[in-house]
Nucleic acid binder design. Sequence first.
DNA 1: TTGTACGCGTTATCAC
DNA 2: GTGATAACGCGTACAA
Lengths: 362, 362
Amino acid sequence: MAAKKLTIKEIAKLSGISVSTVSRAINNHYDISPGTKRRVQEVIDKYGYVPNNSARNLKLNDARNIAVLVKGITNPFFTGMLKVFEQECTSHNYSLVLEHVEESQDMTEIAALLEKEKRLNGIVFLGGNPILSSERLKRLAAPYVFCSVAVTDRKKFSRYAYVSIDDRKEAEVVTDYLIGCGRKRIAILCADERDISIGSLRLEGYLNSLKKHGIEADPELICRPENVEETYTLENGYQSTMKLVKSGAKFDAIFAISDSIAIGCLRALRDCGIEVPKQVSVVGFDGLPIGKYLVPSLTTLKQPVEEMAEASMKELLAMIAERDRKEEQPSSENKKTAVNIRKYQQIFSGTLQERESCRKES
Amino acid sequence: MAAKKLTIKEIAKLSGISVSTVSRAINNHYDISPGTKRRVQEVIDKYGYVPNNSARNLKLNDARNIAVLVKGITNPFFTGMLKVFEQECTSHNYSLVLEHVEESQDMTEIAALLEKEKRLNGIVFLGGNPILSSERLKRLAAPYVFCSVAVTDRKKFSRYAYVSIDDRKEAEVVTDYLIGCGRKRIAILCADERDISIGSLRLEGYLNSLKKHGIEADPELICRPENVEETYTLENGYQSTMKLVKSGAKFDAIFAISDSIAIGCLRALRDCGIEVPKQVSVVGFDGLPIGKYLVPSLTTLKQPVEEMAEASMKELLAMIAERDRKEEQPSSENKKTAVNIRKYQQIFSGTLQERESCRKES
DNA sequence: TTGTACGCGTTATCAC
DNA sequence: GTGATAACGCGTACAA
């Protein structure tokens, strides 16, 4: 009755075989006879033995852990990615360590701690701003990849692997589109002034487009959240729009820098008796699945989330493999510098999905 | 330059103090002088030492891991909970191991493997159906709690800790409400016939309500998904509604058993030129934040997601603490049976949120 | 208050 | 092809 802990030693005893042979059987070593292997397997199955990962990790110095550090876990934009990360980890026999990072926290700091604590094999930085302590980053032993982090300055990122879209360009596409639809007074629901992440990039794209078309940017139409905890939320979209309407500013289109903001915006316009797209066109950003089902359905710039998540994982796994290879045959070169050497950088393209919230007639 | 691995031994050497004392310093033992403790801390800070968790786990036989097994990770209903789980884990110094379980997979099977592999301290079963291999469940050494799992049969669950709502009752509340609004021909967008989870419970609640009010259930109005991979999705709501409308059946209200389904439904009605709530009232279930912002805003039954997640974690942590206590002072009783002995079971109440998608006039 | 020595469960290296 | 044993990094009983 005493629930004796099942260890490899126990299994060895029960099967009348030495621990080393049992270990060989478990790990599919080449130098083991099919017969003994089968015998060991039978005992293992019978008692339901599962090796202790902690011991294994300690010995192998490999925990097979991949961490995903995400800023804003409730952001639906990340939800679709999370599933991909989880699947990729599982299929490659890694565990996914999910860590939510507060808005105010430094991702690199948490990563540094986590890396040592959990012996991470790799790290995905998901979302957030590009305030990177390159000092700390340099010290990370594990390969890492930035996914959907605002690449404000490519030079600054030149040493890192990242997967993202070109926020500036895509925001310009969106604005171009609105202008092409005949809109002249385009408001933007953007981020806080202190934002130095995708918020500022998308604003830049908007401004670039206006400039290109000879339209002067009107400060009245640049709406920033006030006293709002989180930018990319329904509530912020609602409040910002309300404020815009109440300001009395004239506008015939609104560019919301995320779909969540756009959805809140649509509701606010409705509450103000403003018809979409008859009086005002609205465009979102992200391409959340729900956009298609809204009334009116939401014109938006779709990001290829699954593909981006897949690309991130693929690259991370490749970097991990590369590093393992390097470590096996240590050459004269310094290992440290070789870790993130691939510098894989992929900018995905978004696609504008034209739907009801935007009217084309000028 | 050689990146020597930082171990407790290294720190000991660098600070001229023995390993055990360093260990004591790290773990805040009582029997250490403030002076040496400070000295050790300085060295640790200087070199950025972080203890190796694998070794620690192996020694303590405690990995401080809590696993969340979730069926349908992309379901927005779970997203809000995930954040709470993550926060609770972090604040109690546990790591969250997130594991997505495929629709067809057996959660208990995965739990059994994961438990041994990761030396889990506790398990949260999130969502999914109540097909439980009680044999396997009994074998789980770690405490576990079911969160938002359909409690079809309280007797069957009497031995487990769970947190949920009374799906049957709440669905009845929803249907009662529609009837109270003067609706007589109420369609339900429900789950597949094989469903034995919340889908069937909510259908039961619907049927109970009709019966109570002397309304005969019309098979034409019970809409089940066809060839749909996932039930609780926007697309399923859309398709089911389209089929209902095309069937020619007459109805003046629709009860969608989840908000996602309801949102798809609203869009389908719109595409069919059916006005909500003028011609048809629509009610959802779950209380997703987005419901408030839809046009029309969605009447729905709100589940207290955060509270439910908090309650689940609180209970799980309590069970873990209890078990630790028991193990320290092993009495005559069998440990095994004591593990999940608390049997904490909490049924939360939902709240009906009345909004635009439902009209009250009869 | 501090140091020494052992063991946690596993894998790899070496004999046989 | 198989078995004995050292080592991974840490915490702790025990000795000092």
